[in-house]
């Protein structure tokens, strides 16, 4: 474990806690894409299949359980909670996430480190996580006014993978010089997808104005 990875995990955890807090406190999920949240559940389920089989550390296991639990409860709130689900506008959250899931799965079957169930699912989860934010970003572009919590949520979500990029640089040079193209390139793409959001987010923060993404 290194400081970059810990900072990344804490940023990731903070983003999810922030979203869960927004939904529970405001009893609203306005501006949040259910599609993206469902993709994250798929990412965590396919990535943590070895939770019950492989033990790395207490931290690793507890964080996996927290990520699984929080992401599933967010989807539960948005789909089934009697008050929250009324605030979900499915007419604007129209991104067909099957167009993300299928290509990522096929790619994981073709490009992976080993053709085993665990490894292919792990690879699939990395490819899918790289593009999982797209429905949320599309929804933000359609939203006239983005509330601060949602903006901060997306920013933290993007920042966590940027920390992971630093973690991979650190691990390559300091630890085992092991080349890991799949996480590296997926993480690079994931962070690049946030680039324009980061630009508008920082601009709105500097100019103290409302966050607005160009349509």
């Amino acid at each position: 474990m290194n400081a970059f990875r810990l900072a990344g995990d804490m940023t990731h955890l903070l983003s999810i806690i922030l979203l869960l807090h927004k939904i529970r406190a405001m009893k609203s999920c306005a501006g949040i894409s259910l599609r993206t949240q469902e993709l994250y559940v798929i990412v965590f389920v396919t990535r943590y299949v070895d939770l019950s089989m492989k033990y790395y550390s207490f931290y690793n296991s507890i964080m996996k359980i927290v990520f699984l639990g929080t992401s599933i409860s967010i989807v539960w709130y948005m789909r089934y909670h009697k008050v929250v689900k009324q605030t979900y506008n499915k007419d604007v959250d129209t991104f067909r996430h099957i167009f993300l899931i299928l290509p990522c799965f096929v790619l994981a079957l073709l490009i992976n480190r080993a053709f085993t169930v665990i490894e292919v699912l792990w690879t699939f989860s990395l490819y899918l996580e790289a593009v999982a934010i797209l429905p949320q970003l599309v929804l933000l572009q359609r939203s006239r006014n983005i509330d601060n919590l949602t903006g901060n949520y997306v920013f933290l979500l993007g920042a966590y993978r940027a920390f992971y990029l630093l973690n991979w640089i650190y691990r390559f040079f300091i630890e085992n010089h092991q080349v890991r193209w799949i996480p590296w390139l997926s993480g690079l793409l994931q962070t690049a997808i946030y680039a324009d959001f980061f630009y508008y987010y920082i601009k709105s923060w500097k100019n103290r104005e409302k966050l607005k993404l160009p349509a």
Partner: peptide, 10 residues
């Protein structure tokens, strides 16, 4: 080869 594919990151 296969076994030493650690998924030690979250």
């Amino acid at each position: 080869f296969v076994d030493d594919l650690p998924h030690d990151e979250l």
